[in-house]
Nucleic acid binder design. Sequence first.
RNA 1: GCGCCCGUAGCUCAGCUGGAUAGAGCGGCAGCCUCCGGAGCUGUAGGUCGGGAGUUCGAAUCUCUCCGGGCGCGCCA
Length: 690
Amino acid sequence: MYHTLERRLIQQVRDFLRRTYDLDLPRIVVEQPPKVELGEYAMPLAFELAKKLRKAPRKIAEEIVAGIGPIAGFEKLEVAGAGYINARLQRGEVAAALLADENPKLDVPSGKILVEHSSINPNKAAHIGHLRNAILGDTFVRSLRFAGREVDVQNYIDNTGVQVADVVVGFLYIEKKTRAEVEALAAQPKFDYYCWDLYARVSQWYEQDKQNAQTRLQTLHEIEAGGNETAAIAELISVAVLRRHLETMDRLDIEYDFLPRESEILHLHVWDAAFAKLKDAGVLFYETEGKNKGCWVMQRAGTGKKPETAESAADHAGDADTTKDAQAQNNDDVNGHSEVETERVSEEDQKVIVRSNGTVGYVGKDIAYHMWKFGLLGRDFNYRKFYLYPNQHQCWISAIAGEKEHPHFGDVAEIYNVIDARQSEAQNTVIEALRGLGHNEAAEHYTHFSYEMVALTPRCAAELGYQLSEEDKARPYIEVSGRKGFGVKADDLLDRLIASAKNEVDQRHPQLQENERRDIATRIAIGALRYFMLKYTKPSVIAFDFKDALSFEGDTGPYAQYAVVRATNIFRKGGFDPETFTRQSAKHLSAENFARHFEGAEGTEIWELWLAAAKTAYVVEQCIATTEPAYLAKHAFQLAQLFNYFYHRHPILNEADPERKQFLLATVAVVRRELMRSLAVLGITVPAVM
RNA sequence: GCGCCCGUAGCUCAGCUGGAUAGAGCGGCAGCCUCCGGAGCUGUAGGUCGGGAGUUCGAAUCUCUCCGGGCGCGCCA
């Protein structure tokens, strides 16, 4: 609603400028005035135009306001301050449309989007760092779907790497377990916890004796080769831990569509296909001397000559039709590359893709995987059903021998990879490889959804019983380390949140059944956790502390949930169903009915609440454009805050004037609906009572 | 050494692609249950936006520089 009106306003202003001054502004900035009394939109464009038109800003603003004519949905434009143009909405009309839930269909870009998130090593329990990743990713997926986009969710499983090998080493060489014994353990409920502890012990074991590193290497090779006892045990472990990860994430309503595994990248020769193309395009070159002698290497992203001049960068930003430019530029790049090859890339700027022993490293496999994602490889995985969610949603996994019937994965238009900021260089290298292959459009639609890690406050670390050095105690935060077994496990945190919420619910609602109380507590716990992980913007390191995470008051998920519960209570005690009420009153209340109630200081106060409610879709769009879900968390909180203020000031069920009562109820209904929608995109549901 | 990120109230963080008196939560202090009302509400104190220079009609926001902190730079993943 808010977005549509803004676009209409911009269009009108743009037309006017073209008509009157023969001017075309690339961007017309629209913001909100400091107070609603001044209008709903503010445009400072007169300041910008002052120089071009050689007139005072105020004069220009007056000309625009006088000449622009009527705009649908708007009451009027007016000049404010030194030259702001403020626009006022027809409050009644906007409110009537919002109550009726009229959402003009925006043109949704076609093409499937692939979001990769979680990607947890399947060798130990998931921890709070993984939770941030999964919650960010899942919320982004929900945002895209809310905006009408088709999305596939993938969770990449590195089941043949050193991390899995380490746990295998633990079982075979420290605990000296047989395959059958490992199998029995893997069937136990908290197998991921068992592995968590074992993994930490293996790290210590490596330190004890240099010889042990040899065992590790050998184990890794056996797993990569496949078709042997060690590989079978690795498979058994990684699948069991993976299942646990899916269960943990399902507790938070996080689901996946497809789990591509590294073992299939290896065994289905996905890499071989990519390798041939990379060599042909000259992206990879063979090093004949120095420390990387005998390796296939690639120029590391962000090193060497600057490929883009300031001029071409400006072209990119300004031109809507970038594809052709990009394509042309890419050809230059290819030529540039072959020159570089002869010039030779310095050792420091080389990234080894294929080792001198012929094995391919992580980045190489990732390049192949991403070529597959964009449908550029000419090969596909085989697929097998893996996990059926309680809601009957089917999650698929890659396999050597697959099932005949399966959905089509890959071959998408855009991708988003939710991976923490530490991997930005590796991600950029993959993007550069795509560009080097001539797939510039793919590279343009490749987004590294980068975020910062979750660390622990020194106090939290001490609380968990870890010995801290004096140096550590002085740090703002301490990094989680799976290798040391140092961190907060996802299930533990969730259990603790549920227990804490349950304690409150038990006290507040002793009359309810145990299972009802448990359901309420679970929703509150998930609301608290998801909101906690989303309220910080991505570049901010979260210094985790139980005190903050377990808080249910103030800027938290439960605060927003509680606002919805209050809204629901009004309808319940008034004897209406909120949805039915909304439908009926949308028919009866006209724009004129509404307008009356938005007059005066008190009316403006209520209007502010409607305006905030109108912004949900707009904020979701903003989250997508900036890959920043935190804006939506902020929106939900602000909406809840405004509602609580309104709730406190207006006795609704006791309102004597029936028409006004209906208006107030409509206000509650709309805010409730928009708040629930916002929370749903955040992955938060609302309990019946709190 | 090179690259990326951060520095805003006592603490934790917002501040949308530069725009009108810099906001919120927590904590502190003082208050609010006749009602759909306490996981809530109101009020109050608290800020050289790390320092300096520059661009601009206008800078927390852009550029440079310095200070302080974090992360990355492997024939690991």
